[in-house]
Simulated scan of single mutants.
Amino acid sequence: MGEQLRPVRLEGPGGLGGHGQEPFGVLPHMAQWVESRRGWMLIDFPVDSGLAFLSAVANAGPRDAFYARMTHWAAPGPWDVTIKPMDAAMFREDLPSRFRLQLVQVSFPASDLADWSTFGG
Score class of each variant (00 low, 15 high):
M1N: 07
M1V: 08
G2N: 13
E3D: 15
E3F: 11
Q4L: 14
L5C: 11
P7N: 03
L10V: 15
L10Y: 14
E11K: 00
G12F: 06
P13M: 09
P13C: 07
P13I: 08
G14P: 02
G14S: 11
G15M: 05
G15I: 08
G15L: 05
G15E: 03
L16P: 01
L16Q: 05
G17V: 00
G17C: 01
G20N: 08
Q21K: 12
Q21C: 06
E22R: 09
P23D: 02
G25C: 08
L27R: 14
L27Q: 14
P28I: 09
H29S: 13
M30E: 13
A31E: 15
A31G: 06
W33M: 08
E35W: 05
E35N: 14
E35A: 15
M41E: 10
L42E: 07
L42A: 12
L42R: 09
I43N: 03
I43P: 02
D44W: 01
D44A: 11
D44V: 02
F45K: 00
F45L: 00
F45E: 01
P46R: 00
P46K: 00
V47G: 05
D48K: 07
D48H: 07
D48M: 04
S49Q: 07
G50W: 00
L51S: 04
L51P: 01
F53C: 05
V57C: 05
A58R: 11
A58D: 14
A58Q: 13
N59F: 03
N59S: 14
N59K: 09
A60W: 00
G61D: 02
P62R: 10
R63M: 11
D64M: 06
A65K: 09
A65P: 04
F66N: 03
Y67A: 06
A68W: 01
R69Q: 03
R69N: 01
M70E: 03
T71Y: 00
H72L: 08
A75N: 05
G77C: 07
G77M: 09
P78A: 05
W79L: 04
D80F: 07
D80C: 05
V81Y: 02
V81M: 05
T82Q: 13
I83G: 11
I83P: 03
K84S: 15
P85W: 01
D87Y: 03
D87W: 02
D87V: 01
A88C: 02
A89R: 08
M90V: 05
M90Y: 10
R92M: 09
R92P: 00
E93L: 12
D94S: 09
D94L: 06
L95T: 00
P96M: 04
P96A: 09
R98Q: 12
F99L: 12
F99Y: 10
R100C: 06
R100F: 15
L101D: 10
Q102N: 12
L103Y: 04
L103T: 14
V104F: 00
V104Y: 01
Q105H: 06
S107K: 08
S107A: 15
F108C: 08
F108Q: 06
F108N: 05
A110E: 13
A110H: 12
A110I: 09
S111C: 04
D112Y: 10
D112G: 07
D112N: 11
A114F: 12
A114N: 12
W116Y: 13
W116D: 04
S117N: 12
T118I: 04
F119C: 07
F119L: 05
G120P: 09
G121A: 10
